[in-house]
């Protein structure tokens, strides 16, 4: 029984680590601010979730388990809030997505360039 739990938690930790590193790579590779934000979203939701669930399987004490659940809940509540506030602040202060494919975009680009 113990060996199954160890293997499961090891697998979850491995996948979580892979997702976190992928998020970091995406943060470096993607071309502009808004696309980078999606890369950070990966590490905030499933990356953190997988690692914390993997740790929950290893915990023997109930209090430790409860605290890990609390950390997970806080992460899931905080992640979207900060992303939204960050996107809103950037949008209202004139950062525009680079090459998005819609009509509204060209108009806004002109506005931004007139501000500059």
């Amino acid at each position: 029984m113990d060996i199954i739990i160890t293997i499961c938690s090891g697998f979850l930790l491995l996948v979580g680590s892979f997702l976190c590193i992928s998020g970091g790579i995406g943060l470096l590779r993607f071309p502009d601010f808004y696309t980078r934000m999606h890369a950070v979203g990966v590490t905030d939701t499933l990356g953190a979730g997988m690692i914390l669930v993997g740790l929950m399987m290893l915990s023997t004490d109930f209090l430790v388990f409860a605290k890990l659940v609390m950390v997970l809940l806080f992460t899931l509540l905080i992640g979207p809030t900060t992303s939204h506030v960050l996107a809103k602040a950037a949008f209202h202060n004139g950062v525009r997505p680079k090459d998005s494919n819609n009509l509204e975009q060209s108009k806004e680009k002109e506005n931004t360039s007139s501000i500059l």
């Binding site: 998020g23 601010f33 980078r36 934000m37 950070v40 905030d44 900060t82 960050l86 950037a90």
Partner: peptide, 10 residues
């Protein structure tokens, strides 16, 4: 500036 705040948050 927002890239930096994003990186610090992560």
């Amino acid at each position: 500036l927002y890239d930096r705040i994003l990186a610090v948050n992560m």
